[in-house]
C-alpha cells in the first residue's frame, strides 16, 4: 500500500448555487489520524461524506488507496468497503446490539462473526450488552455501538463524525482509548471530525481547519497548535473565535 490513502485536488461540493466545500489540496497519509476541526456549518461533515465515497464532489478529483486512477462514481463495492464511517447521529436497526454490530460482516458474508463481534464490543466496553435491544441504549452506549459496528469491519480507513459530541467524560475516554488501540494494533487510517480542539490535540497527527467550507490551514498537529500561520487558525485554537 502506498503512503497515502486520500489525495484530492480542487474538491468542490455545491448544493444548488451554494458552494459548501472548497478544498484545493488534500492528502491523508496511511496510518495517520487526521483531525478536521472547525465551527458548525464549516463543511466538515460534507468533506467526510466525500471521503466516505458516499457523495461525489461536484468538481475536482479524488484519488483513493494509492491508486493512480481517480475514484469512479459510484465507486465499486470492494473499494467502498475499505472505508467505514461513523455518523454524528448514528441510527441503529431495531434489533439487538449483537445483530447491529454484526450487520456489516453479514452483508459481506464473512466467517467467524460471533468472536469478531464480541471482540469489537469488548473494545468499546459493551461486551455485557450484546443481547440488549438497540432502543434501550443510552446516548453514550449508542455511540459506542456505532463505533463497534465500524471497528468490527477492520476497515483500511475509519471516518468519524463528531463521535463524542454530547457525551460524558467516561464515554469520551472509552471511545478515545478504542481509537488509540485501533491505530496501534491495526494501523488504521482515521479521519476525525470534531469541533473540540482539545480532542484534536490529544489524538491527531495532522490537523485541518475548515471555515465556511474553505480549508484555512492544514499542518502537522504540533505546528498547527503551537505556531499556526493563519490568524483565524490562531484565534480558533485559542478559543477566541466568535462564530
Amino acid at each position: 500500500m502506498s503512503d497515502w490513502v486520500y489525495m484530492g485536488e480542487g474538491l468542490r461540493v455545491t448544493y444548488g448555487r451554494r458552494t459548501v466545500l472548497r478544498v484545493d489540496e488534500l492528502t491523508v497519509r496511511a496510518g495517520n489520524l487526521l483531525g478536521i476541526v472547525g465551527p458548525s456549518g464549516a463543511g466538515k461533515s460534507t468533506l467526510l461524506r466525500v471521503l466516505a465515497l458516499l457523495e461525489p464532489p461536484t468538481e475536482g478529483v479524488l484519488y483513493f488507496g494509492g491508486s493512480s486512477e481517480p475514484v469512479r462514481w459510484p465507486p465499486p463495492l470492494d473499494v467502498r468497503r475499505r472505508v467505514t464511517m461513523v455518523f454524528q447521529r448514528p441510527l441503529l436497526l431495531s434489533d439487538s446490539v449483537f445483530r447491529n454490530v454484526a450487520y456489516g460482516l453479514r452483508a459481506r458474508g464473512s466467517d467467524n462473526v460471533r468472536p469478531r463481534v464480541e471482540q469489537a464490543l469488548e473494545m468499546v466496553g459493551l461486551a455485557h450488552m450484546a443481547h440488549a435491544a438497540a432502543h434501550t441504549l443510552s446516548g453514550g452506549e449508542l455511540q459506542r455501538v456505532a463505533l463497534a459496528r465500524a471497528l468490527v469491519l477492520e476497515p483500511d480507513v475509519l471516518l468519524l463524525d463528531e463521535p463524542t459530541a454530547n457525551l460524558d467524560p467516561y464515554n469520551v475516554s472509552v471511545i478515545e482509548e478504542a481509537l488509540k488501540r485501533l491505530r496501534h494494533h491495526n494501523h488504521t487510517t482515521i479521519v476525525l471530525v470534531t469541533h473540540n480542539v482539545f480532542q484534536a490535540r490529544r489524538l491527531a497527527d495532522r490537523v485541518m481547519f475548515l471555515l465556511d467550507g474553505e480549508c484555512v490551514e492544514a499542518a502537522d498537529a504540533e505546528t498547527f497548535f503551537e505556531s499556526p500561520k493563519d490568524p483565524r487558525t490562531r484565534a480558533f485554537v485559542r478559543g477566541e473565535m466568535v462564530y
Partner: peptide, 15 residues
C-alpha cells in the same frame, strides 16, 4: 424511515 439509515448501512458495506 430516516433516510440517513440507508446511507449509514451503505457506509457499513451493504449493497
Amino acid at each position: 424511515v430516516d433516510p440517513s439509515l440507508r446511507q449509514q448501512l451503505i457506509s457499513l458495506g451493504a449493497t
